[in-house]
Nucleic acid binder design. Structure first.
Lengths: 203, 203
DNA sequence: CCTCCGAAGCAAATATTTGTGCTTACGATG
DNA sequence: CATCGTAAGCACAAATATTTGCTTCGGAGG
């Protein structure tokens, strides 16, 4: 005994490794200790050999992007509430709840951190960002199908998504109560949407 | 000769070094090539020995924070236009113009990148962020002194600053024309401020 | 049950980043 | 004009991150 303990080397399946590494990324990002994020640290926390991480993802940006994509897809359940306001409210409430957790904020931070500087990649990222907002677009589409007149995507970006992101990034807590309603209210009551009653659709 | 060429070693003054390093940070951040930002690269680009950078700033976060603070202070001229709307519009126009340049976007990115993950530092950063918004607070104060009723800071954050930041971060270009007016219009016309005529102050 | 392929683990080499001791230039002060 | 403190530059050392060659496990297909 004491010689090799070959049995101690437990090898995990690719899926397990992937999940463990993703979790380690989120853990480290949301760790209050605030060490800087790098591949050896991630691998160690995941209990995975660092070479496995290098070989699979290549660099930190790719790993972050993969983590973010996977998690966000996993955590975006689309409820159809029957009205535009209800859908937006559900979205806003889920988002606000998310950024109240350190893990949720970490994910948003990871989105930003994984964005490279290059002009070309920046353009690609802008597209990816739009793609990531497909839940919002679906809400708009459903509303249009119902005869409602949803605000344009850019307005939703400015009035609903932007406040959510900036608070996540800078760690500014949203107001305690009524914040989702406030944002949705502003969005619908102000500009191009006939907020009050949903019936006055154009024909 | 040919032995040492001691004369080739030009030493620059601390001020020059500081400026050169700051410029190198911004250059690298906005470089379309998109290499990753680190101290050796910055030092090389600035034509400065990397030890000078390590000794003066210690780490990348501190350097980024210093660069951002210096540049933002340098580039925030406060015009007093005489009205709340005018002041906000001037601020928004300057900001939008800024994020149309790659250097301006780089600065915003640097703000985010220099933010450490730790919970404690996160709280500090939130404060620093507020401090950095003192130009907005001054605008509010002047408006109050005039008898105008400016929106609360949080609302300005959500409706004016957040859209500006998110577009800078994700590289989403603002609409070609009228964007500053649009944002200010929404901000003043909608919520707690009696937008149309400035006279109906509470007493 | 055997063989083969893909991926994880290990160890060691390489590259890169970070830190240190010392020297030297510049400017301030007397 | 001499001297003294500060900060930049250089060379080298230490720490850390990245890459590579090889071995070994586990599952898929025969």
């Amino acid at each position: 005994m004491t010689q090799k303990q070959a049995s101690a080397r437990v090898r995990r399946s690719p899926e397990e490794v992937r999940a463990a590494v993703h979790q380690a990324v989120v853990d480290l990002l949301s760790d209050p200790a605030g060490e800087d994020l790098n591949i050896p640290a991630i691998a160690q926390r995941a209990g995975v050999n660092h070479t496995s991480v290098y070989r699979r993802w290549g660099n930190l940006d790719a790993l972050l992007a993969d983590t973010v994509t996977t998690r966000l897809e996993r955590d975006s359940p689309l409820n159809d509430t029957g009205t535009l306001r209800g859908d937006l409210l559900a979205w806003a409430e889920a988002s606000v709840a998310s950024i109240r957790t350190s893990e949720g904020r970490a994910l948003v931070r990871a989105v930003v951190l994984s964005m490279p500087n290059s002009a070309q990649a920046q353009a690609e990222r802008a597209q990816q960002f739009q793609r990531r907002m497909h839940s919002i677009e679906q809400i708009r589409r459903r509303a249009t199908a119902r005869g409602e007149n949803p605000p344009p995507l850019e307005q939703i970006l400015d009035q609903l998504i932007a406040p959510f992101y900036i608070r996540a990034i800078f760690g500014i807590d949203p107001p305690d109560s009524g914040y989702p309603e406030l944002l949705v209210d502003r969005l619908l009551g102000d500009g191009s949407a006939p907020g009050a009653s949903s019936a006055s659709a154009a024909d």
